[in-house]
Design a protein around this nucleic acid. Sequence first.
DNA 1: GATCAGGCTCTAA
DNA 2: ATTAGAGCCTGAT
Length: 103
Amino acid sequence: MSNELAQMILAVVSQIPKGKVASYGQIAKLAGLPKHARLVGRVLGQIEDRTAIPWHRVINSQGKMSTTQLTEHGDHLQQILLLSEGVVVINGRVNLKQFAWLP
DNA sequence: GATCAGGCTCTAA
DNA sequence: ATTAGAGCCTGAT
């Protein structure tokens, strides 16, 4: 794993404004890594709970969450976090037209 | 929706 | 150093 790439990716993720979401591919592109969507997912999965990165604002291009994150309460953590910042999540899906982050 | 193939990194041998 | 397998994806069938 290259920390350089991870840092760039995390830097971009950190820039996602509250109440908006971005796709893996979009993050990769903004980080200057056009075809590295999968790497983004990998990096996030690695640091998701160890850092203060808003990983929950990153979803796939179809507006769905890749992993089913469950809390001790048995709820979808990512969904809860998004809802708490005003992003509407329906059936585990986000309305990209409305909440996609447009830099 | 579900499926397929593409493009690229990471890890383990 | 090279090879092979697998992956929290995407865009087009």
